[in-house]
């Protein structure tokens, strides 16, 4: 029997998670807690959001901000997760890096879609239009297309190592879009309002709107963390199924 290195020297940090079985065990333990935290955060956030007063400038529709902004934050956060995964594939060759990146893509696409739709709905009463081709909205739409392209790319290459590295390169090149989204409201005069939360210096939003927004942001974040871990687990299962199917095919041919 080969020496089980896990019992002799437990590897630390991310290397410890490289073993899929350990990772799955970790996921099984974490997911229920993360799910509970998510639900609680959503509860608090929604309650705070609905009990807040009306903004003098934007009226009642300001409440849409409490879902639109977190969706956008997570849309970009999911892409940054893919970027870490891509670096993990190319630089550190971590075995689960590609799993992490692949799992994040559909979730990120969902958040991007949600951000686009809520933004459009919010835009109608605010500025009288469902859509405008300004820099920020366009680059956010581009983000969605990049997500879909990446998902198509991952699905079209069979061999896991190859698809991991190809996709990693595209993820990194496409990452240039993220700063464009973030800073486009500074560089161009656009219809979209400029940053009031994530800026150098204190946020300019008043506390009664800031706190519900931050809580909702955390709620979305924990939702993403929960779903991401579960999606990584799904991806690991998929690979196990594939290798079993290949083994079965070889058995039949013997």
């Amino acid at each position: 029997m080969s020496i089980d290195t896990n019992t002799i020297v437990a590897p630390k940090g991310l290397t410890a998670l490289a073993n899929p079985t350990r990772f799955l065990a970790l996921v099984k333990m974490l997911v229920p807690w993360l799910a509970v935290i998510t639900v609680v955060l959503f509860g608090i956030g929604l309650w705070m959001g609905f009990s807040v007063a009306d903004d003098y400038q934007q009226g009642r529709t300001v409440r849409i901000m409490f879902v639109h902004v977190p969706a956008v934050w997570l849309a970009m956060g999911a892409y940054m997760t893919m970027v870490s995964g891509a670096l993990g594939v190319l630089v550190w060759r971590h075995p689960l890096a590609d799993v992490a990146a692949r799992a994040a893509a559909p979730l990120g696409a969902g958040f991007t879609f949600l951000g686009l739709v809520t933004g459009s709905i919010w835009g109608r009463p605010m500025w009288g239009t469902w859509w405008v081709w300004d820099a920020r909205l366009t680059s956010f739409l581009v983000l969605l297309i990049i997500y879909l392209g990446l998902m198509a790319l991952w699905n079209s290459i069979e061999e896991p190592a190859k698809s991991a590295r190809m996709a990693a390169v595209v993820v990194l090149v496409g990452a240039i879009n993220i700063p464009i989204i973030k800073f486009s409201v500074e560089w161009f005069t656009t219809l979209h309002q400029s940053a009031s939360v994530t800026r150098l210096g204190a946020p300019t939003m008043s506390a009664e709107f800031l706190y519900p927004l931050l809580i909702m942001g955390l709620a979305f974040l924990f939702l993403f963390l929960t779903l991401h871990l579960m999606a990584m687990r799904n991806e690991i299962l998929r690979r196990q199924i594939r290798s079993l199917q290949r083994r079965a095919a070889r058995e039949v041919l013997k």
């Binding site: 009226g59 009642r60 529709t61 409440r63 849409i64 879902v67 639109h68 969706a71 559909p106 979730l107 969902g110 879609f113 949600l114 739709v117 809520t118 709905i121 919010w122 109608r124 009463p125 939702l223 779903l227 579960m230 999606a231 687990r233 799904n234 299962l237």
Partner: peptide, 27 residues
């Protein structure tokens, strides 16, 4: 504005619920 607020929260709930359901069903 009720329609706009309601529909944005509704679509949020729908999309997030779909994501959760998709992950669970795949699992």
């Amino acid at each position: 504005y009720f329609g706009f607020i309601a529909s944005s929260f509704a679509v949020t709930f729908a999309v997030l619920a779909l994501m959760v359901i998709w992950v669970l069903m795949t699992y």
